[in-house]
Design a protein around this nucleic acid. Sequence first.
DNA 1: AACAGCTTCAACCGCCCAGTC
DNA 2: TGACTGGGCGGTTGAAGCTGT
Length: 244
Amino acid sequence: MVRAPCCEKMGLKRGPWTAEEDMTLVAHIEQHGHSNWRALPKQAGLLRCGKSCRLRWINYLRPDIKRGNFTSDEEEAIIQVHAMLGNRWSTIAARLPGRTDNEIKNVWHTHLKKRLESSSKPSGQAAPKRKAKKPAVAASALEGPTSEPASSSPGQSLSTSSATGYSMASSLENTGSSSSEEFQIDDSFWSETLAMSADSSGSGMESSDTFGVDSGAPSSSNDEMDFWVTLFMQASDIQSLSQI
DNA sequence: AACAGCTTCAACCGCCCAGTC
DNA sequence: TGACTGGGCGGTTGAAGCTGT
């Protein structure tokens, strides 16, 4: 089967988006929506392929995007869900309102993965050479309504302070672990968790929307995912209770 | 001050899957 | 039923910025 290339390369622009292109794209989507990504750039007069437009919109221009550093709660959530699901970035992103899969992926590879790796090593060789530093680069490029000045200050660690006012659901806040503590799954976790899941099965588990997110995804395909996420969150509650 | 090395992140690539004809 | 299309996802890349020497 001959598959057409995702977009004709000829004459299409690549690379960083200009503010003008951003404005054009946003204006077009606000006016017409994005029912057809492939046709969109032509309709909007953009010399970009549809995929590129989609990516730009999803990862950067969407009005509900939350920019700026990740809160420690968000980081914890990523670590925890990643521990269960692996590199299911879109699924993880669905649990973090305003965050994109791409952003989460980047944070994972640049911060969290190293953090976990270093924590698993013998103490002493852990810390990255440098502290996290700059504000989000591109956020400053786009003076959009949702771009907020990255709240980082020199020397700010990767467990970012949040100026967003956003906080994760209390289930995470109650885990009793500070942001610097690493999440670990031990045997007691699974025994407690599985026991609990047996109890709760069929008895109306809490909404799968543990983070207060409406992922918008049809439940059928995400049932399994939701199950594990919910399971995990409940287990977190168990652990926090046991620490009281 | 200049340079090299490192880090970050926006953007691209290619594959897969679901929907449509 | 199979071909085809469009959208979505995860992995990777490379330019820009930052830090250390």
